[in-house]
Amino acid sequence: MNSFSYSRARDVAAAVDEVALPERQAKFIAGGTNLLDLMKENVMHPRHLVDITHLELNTIEDTLEGGLRLGALVTNADTAYHEQVDTRYPLLSKAILAGASPQLRNMATNGGNLMQRTRCYYFYDTATPCNKREPGTGCSAIRGFNRIHAILGTSEHCIATHPSDMCVALAALEAKVHVRGPHGDRAIPFADFHRLPGDTPELDNNLQPDELITAIELPPQGFADHHSYLKLRDRTSYAFALVSVAAALELDGDTIREARLALGGVAHKPWRDPEAEALLIGKSATRESFQLAAEKILQGAKGFPYNEFKIELARRAIVRAFEQALTNEK
């Protein structure tokens, strides 16, 4: 790990001020589970770390609109096991608990979960070219071992995936990300938070370097009655998703009134397609309807030599997840 200087921020405004000095090449640190790992691998090398763990962003509160506001510094474990989250947003609890290990979930924060970087092997391996790590050097994954890589929204510059489970549920729930920057506060709809690689794969998201995530807001609709988070991976615990599906339904008898569908492990961001969801509205909650939605969301999917299987895997996983959502099993 490179050497660096360290400071502890007193409040949100001070934290934003401290990270904004460009000559400092500073980063915020909270849980540290991804940043310190990347620093040990020499993938990231900030010259200064601003410790934000003492900021008062560590509560979960009701919003006036009837939703829930998750403080950026609440740990993933405390969020998943929070009584209100578990009761009203069980899709989110299940997605969080499908990721990482208990130790990591005790450390990792909600804000940090959004900021975690891809686990593409070539991004981690400083001996190989990687456009995300060093723009312009090329993508080793496109012609390399790309079993874990993306099938949707890729570019000729990058086929990395976003590794989070929590974010897949947040995308399906249409959360909002509240951030503070030098010019004040703004809220970013979840769909606009993460980016596709395009020709700037070095940018994972639309947060500016001097902005700090303060909270994640959940809207009132939590789909507690009919939801499923289905995660498929090489071992049944403590592994990143090959494909994961967050599926949620609002039913009127057998008729679908509202549907949400988000995929993980298949793109540079949690993948949604509002048209696939719209296809389900007014339809019967049957396998045939779910297959239609699966076809739609996977339209344009493109496999690479080692991950072609993900297209069929995703198709079947979507149908399975919706069927599980009907009965809320697992």
Binding site: Y6, I29, G32, T33, L36, D37, K40, E41, L49, D51, T53, A77, S101, P102, Q103, L104, N106, M107
Partner: peptide, 25 residues
């Protein structure tokens, strides 16, 4: 690197990976 758990300790009663934790924090 936080993958094996051999470094697990308890901080305020909660288990964490001490290898991914800065002592100053």
């Amino acid at each position: 690197h936080g993958q094996c758990g051999a470094c697990t300790v308890l901080v305020n009663g909660k288990r964490i990976n001490s290898c991914l934790t800065l002592a100053v924090m």
